[in-house]
Design a protein around this nucleic acid. Sequence first.
RNA 1: GGCGCCGUAGCCAAGUGGCUAAGGCAGCGGAUUGCAAAUCCGCCAUCGUCGGUUCGACUCCGACCGGCGCCUCCA
Length: 524
Amino acid sequence: MAESNPSTHSFPNIELYNTLSHQKEQFTTVVPGKVGMYLCGPTVYKPSHIGHMVGPVIFDTIKRHLVYSGWEVTWVVNITDVDDKLIAESKVRNMSMTALAEEMTADYLDNLSALGVQGIDTMPKATDHIEGIVKFIEGLVQKDCAYPADGDVYFDVAKDEDYGKLTNRSPEKMQGEGGATASRKRSAADFTLWKKAKPGEPSWESPWGPGRPGWHIECSAMSEAILGSHFDIHGGGLDLVFPHHENEIAQSESLHECPMATYWMHNGLMQAAGVAGKVGGRPRDGSDTPDDLAATKISKSTGAEPFKELLTRHRPEVIKLLLLSTHYRSPIHFGEEPLGESARALEAFERLFNRYERLCGNSYYTLTERNRHDGNIAISKFHGDIKEYASALRNRFLDAMDDDFNTAIAVATLFDLIRYINKFIDSESLEKKTTDSDLETLTHLMLLMRELTSNLGLFLTPPVQVAAGTDGKLLESLMQLIIELRSRARKTKDFATADLIRDSLNEADIQLEDRADGTDWSIT
RNA sequence: GGCGCCGUAGCCAAGUGGCUAAGGCAGCGGAUUGCAAAUCCGCCAUCGUCGGUUCGACUCCGACCGGCGCCUCCA
């Protein structure tokens, strides 16, 4: 039982890729046994699209794996609720910035909830931390790392010796924001910490007059307030590496004189598939022009559809499986075609879950989600070849996750497990006769599956029924009737009628599956 | 122009200096089925091109070709 005491825990070796060092590093935490993790969240001025969901899904899985492995994790995702874009959009929609932010935050939360992203511990809003932000800027001004200019405050890049270390840039080579602020800045690379308010704009009092925070400062101030001046993991999309994270490092490390985060993790960006669902790369043949193959980043400017619209066509689980089938640092090939493939792949899991439920009477979704420690113990409940297989498969899965959270390999092992369990059911003819011992083994195998799918954050809750309520009952009884009639036809070898029924249902997207013990139906 | 990533089967996508280069989708053959569906078994790649390093490279280096991202708001 000493194992349950964090101070005596032995933690697995985890390696993760650090953008700062451009290589994989062994994971160690600032405070033993505890992990502080900060992910840059959305600016809430428009409904979120698929791109906004990548980070949360991936980091939810990362948190799951760390918690599963014994760490105590605090995960922070910020909400940027004050910003130029919010001000502009609230004018267009003739509403207050606060109301707009609340509406879009609610949209964001709905989407996270649909995707089963459950691990976020706190979601600080920038407007709740103005005081801390002002103090942060004051500290920088006092240390002469920043200077006020006509109501604005700028970070002085020249005072930060290692500015650019995250992205290998030097201030001299950068063009900077330019425009109206250029004349007030000492260097083009200097960036805004505090922005003077124009008449009518939302503003807060400060030593430099009324204004609002610049883009980067909130993350520095809020991460410090919640996680401390040096925490473990800072994450975000690859598009945030520069300038956002570079500037966060500059601010925080100039003020605190310690590393801001030990590990900087960045996820790949969504790519909209080009023609024929292709991603790009080398030309395939003379007929393919590069333009036809081009994949491009999905973003607000390319008119990505709101996530909620996507959810009307695709179940959250399908989207999640697609996201996890690619390594998090790679670009993700996204579109209707890949989503369709993901949906077909997903069915293999759900058919097995249904099969298990038919045999054992238990829903897969009620099975216990084990942690790593309990999973280690549970492996000993298998015997012989099955034990060998289960143990090897589980190790393959865990090795992949320990190696920079390689969910692509982890998912692949799951497909192997599906085949293995189906084979077990087939070879023992469990559909025809079962013994207690067989069912016990089957349940242990399914518990292993459960342990691993929950680690990824997959199949947490039963799929929402397409037809619910009274309509569902009506449909159910109609289907029972139709199946009964077809069954009678089959018994009298009237296959023409039986096939007519099945084909007609097929055209209505209802699929029948005949089994020894009856006929199942499902909506495709 | 500067910084960085990538190019693996029809499509998607892992991976390794040398045993059989994961897995998914699609396809083909077989078992099973009244026929299907599902399930199981089997088949399906020499890793953009050209050089170099090496006993040996798809994996390391170089050049070239092609794609993508960042340098401006962006998850």
